[in-house]
Amino acid sequence: MKTLEIKDLSYHKNSKTILERVNLTLEAGKIVALVGANGAGKTSLMRVIAGLAKQYKGSVEVCGEADEDRRKQYIAMTDSLSAFRDSRKIKDVADFYRLVYPDFDDKQFADILEFMNLNEDERLGSLSKGMKEKLIIALVFSRKAKLYLLDEPFSGVDAMSRKKIIKSMLLWKPEEATLVISDHVLDEIAPVIDEVVLIKKHSVLEQRSAEEIRAEQESIEEWYEGFYEGEE
């Protein structure tokens, strides 16, 4: 079953090309890495899928639903929490999520917070980069979605927190849901992904099965770096 189907997607912003002729299909239940250099268009692609960027051409279907507002119900995307002031507590953010998303599950949120060693009375301003990222992941997996979009969940996060975040993905991703993780490095998520999608020159350059790449005695990192050889 297809969770995501993108056909001939182009997206321009202020007459600048952001995405050009993107075609991409993702099956249900997969964990997919979305990789590419900074500025390649990974975040823009996620925003288009999530219905946050609307001025695009082409078609984007999530669980067969093309309408931006209607496909939102199937999607949970990470939020940077920049709209919340530092004095806000974790439970205030949860209150907001509960209000905005009918699929937000309180029990699940409490479970993930506990797993992450976070306390709902902590203020956002007192959280380290790693703790904040853990909170963002807890919020996203407390929603019952078909498609989870995690935008660079590991940037600035220490190794121990990265491991914890990866485990939480394995624990709380619903079996039939598809998970897309964008990153510009691949080291730690390589063993947990089914597929890797490479964004370059504003489009999807490659989509490969991770095990297939390894079957050619190549690591996914080597494969990925191969596309940037001779570039600085």
């Binding site: 394995l170 079996e175 063993p191």
Partner: peptide, 8 residues
């Protein structure tokens, strides 16, 4: 979980 790999 034990091996930190994909269930698939």
């Amino acid at each position: 979980l034990e091996l930190t790999v994909n269930a698939n």
